[in-house]
Simulated scan of single mutants.
Amino acid sequence: MTFYDDIYPFYPLQRTAFIFSGRLLTIILVFLVLAVSLLLILPGIRGKSRLFWMFRILTSLFIGVVIVALNFTSDWAEGRVTTNATYKSFSDAVVNVDIGLHVGLYGINVTLRGNPVVQLNETINYNEMFSWQDSIEKDYEEALERGLPNPILYIAEKFTMHSPCGLIFQYRFSGRYASATLWTAFCCWMLTNILFSMPVILYAGYMMLATAAFVFFSMASFSTAMNAPQCVFSLGSDSFVTAYSHSFWLALATGTVLTLVVLLNFLIPEKMKEAFSVGVDSDENDRYSYGNGYVNSVFVDGVIIYPMTSKFSAVSRWI
């Protein structure tokens, strides 16, 4: 790479998948390894407890990976449109493109794909990440220096500090509180798994309810930005606004499942104890009878021997 008038002829691409990023893949792989490691002990569990234990482990790990992954997804809200728009600055060239905006808790992804992909002798297929965790202004300045297409720059400018829409203040603070409550829900989830290993699942049910509550709190925090006056993104002859997307509905489903488990614990506690393998060992032990014990009379002169049963031990009394 050489210089031409102190300007790089090529710029590094800042492309990030808006659904499966490297962080998400790492989280999923960690939980998959943990799930496989726990399932390896299934052959050592006898009876129907094996199925209950497997269902409990898989459900718990699914909830855990969802809570962690929701912090790093970029599709809590999204909007998209297909339109004819100018492609570059200082040019009247118009291209037909699909434009998408994907909002997460730490930033946004802007996607731009041509119809067809190759137009004006260029491949129009962009996926750019703008993060407000540090400063979105720096990312926007770098996008200007790289000469990104006009639709991407237009959407990114709406999230800068000087934009009259004020989107950066809405989404940055709501995303910050939503992320904090999700991490709190993850801590409650870990305490729930610890308490489930104890004989009484009442306290585990309380922590599960707390987990569901913090998941709902994260949704409520993010909803504050969505309930504010919506900024309209006008591109070409069309426009769009953002709406709730996959991550938001996945958080709702996770919180609903946690709440449902807690309700079932109050409605059918005995069935839930059996499902979570609480009290199973004591029930199985009651099925076995040890019968009467035998004691050699040679060694017990002067001692009265009472028969031994499964519930009473031998009692001896000196005469």
Rank of each mutant, 00 (worst) to 15 (best):
T184W: 04
Y140C: 10
S174H: 01
F217S: 11
A204Y: 00
L182Y: 07
F214R: 14
I152N: 00
L144N: 03
A220S: 11
L182C: 07
F216R: 15
A213N: 12
W183A: 07
A212H: 02
F216A: 10
Q133N: 03
A220L: 10
M219I: 07
G166A: 11
C187L: 14
S218V: 04
M226F: 12
F216W: 03
L195K: 04
T184K: 04
P164C: 10
L144V: 06
T160G: 05
W132C: 06
L153S: 01
L182K: 06
A180W: 08
F186S: 06
L182V: 08
A143L: 06
F173E: 15
G147I: 08
F159Q: 02
A156T: 05
A212C: 14
E142D: 10
I155T: 01
N193R: 06
D139T: 05
P199I: 01
G147V: 08
R176M: 15
I201A: 10
S131M: 06
A228R: 09
S221Y: 08
I194Q: 09
F217E: 14
Q170M: 04
Y177A: 09
R172Y: 00
L144A: 00
A212L: 07
C165L: 03
A228G: 01
H162V: 10
N193T: 07
A210V: 05
L195R: 03
M198K: 13
A204H: 02
G166S: 10
G166R: 14
E141D: 10
F222V: 02
L167D: 08
F216C: 04
Y171P: 02
R176N: 11
A228D: 05
F214G: 00
V215K: 05
S163G: 07
T211F: 03
A212E: 12
S179G: 13
F159D: 03
G175L: 02
W183D: 09
Y171M: 03
F214M: 14
T184I: 12
H162W: 10
W189D: 00
H162D: 12
T224L: 12
M226R: 05
N227R: 15
S179A: 15
N150P: 00
F173K: 14
F169D: 15
A225Q: 05
P164I: 09
E157Y: 12
Q133L: 14
D134R: 05
P149H: 08
S221E: 13
A178W: 03
P164H: 05
S221L: 00
S223M: 05
Y140P: 00
G175A: 07
S223R: 09
T181E: 10
L148M: 02
H162Q: 13
L195Y: 09
P149F: 07
